[in-house]
Amino acid sequence: MDAVRAVAEPRRREILRLVWDAELSAGEIAERFDVTFGAVSQHLKVLRDSGLVTLRREGKKRFYRADHEALGPLADYLRSMWSAKLDTLAELAEAAEQEGRDHSEGASP
Results as ranks from 00 to 15, higher is better:
Ile15Asn: 03
Asp76Arg: 13
Ala22Lys: 08
Arg65Gly: 07
Gly38Asn: 11
Ala8Glu: 11
Glu58Val: 04
Glu31His: 00
Glu105Ala: 13
Thr88Leu: 14
Pro73Val: 15
Leu89Ala: 15
Ala96Val: 11
Glu97Thr: 15
Ile15Met: 04
Lys60Pro: 00
Ala93Val: 15
His68Arg: 13
His103Trp: 10
Ala75Gly: 06
Thr88Pro: 02
His103Pro: 03
Leu18Glu: 01
Val7Phe: 12
Val46Asn: 04
Ile29Pro: 02
Val46Glu: 04
Gly27Leu: 11
Glu69Cys: 05
Val4Met: 00
Glu94Trp: 03
Ser41Gln: 10
Gly100His: 14
Gly51Asp: 02
Gly100Leu: 14
Arg13Ala: 09
Ala26Asp: 10
Arg56Ser: 04
Gly27Thr: 10
Trp20Pro: 06
Gly38Arg: 13
Ala96Arg: 14
Tyr77Ser: 11
Ser83Asn: 13
Glu31Ile: 01
Gly106Asn: 05
Val7Lys: 12
Leu16Tyr: 03
Leu92Lys: 15
Ala93Lys: 15
Ile15Gln: 03
Arg79Lys: 08
Asp102Pro: 09
Ser108Gln: 11
Gly72Tyr: 10
Gly72Arg: 14
Glu31Cys: 01
Gly100Ala: 15
Glu28His: 08
Trp20Ser: 08
Gly51Arg: 01
Arg5Thr: 01
Leu78Ala: 08
Glu9Val: 09
Val7His: 13
Tyr64Ile: 05
Asp2Ala: 01
Asp76Thr: 14
Glu58Lys: 04
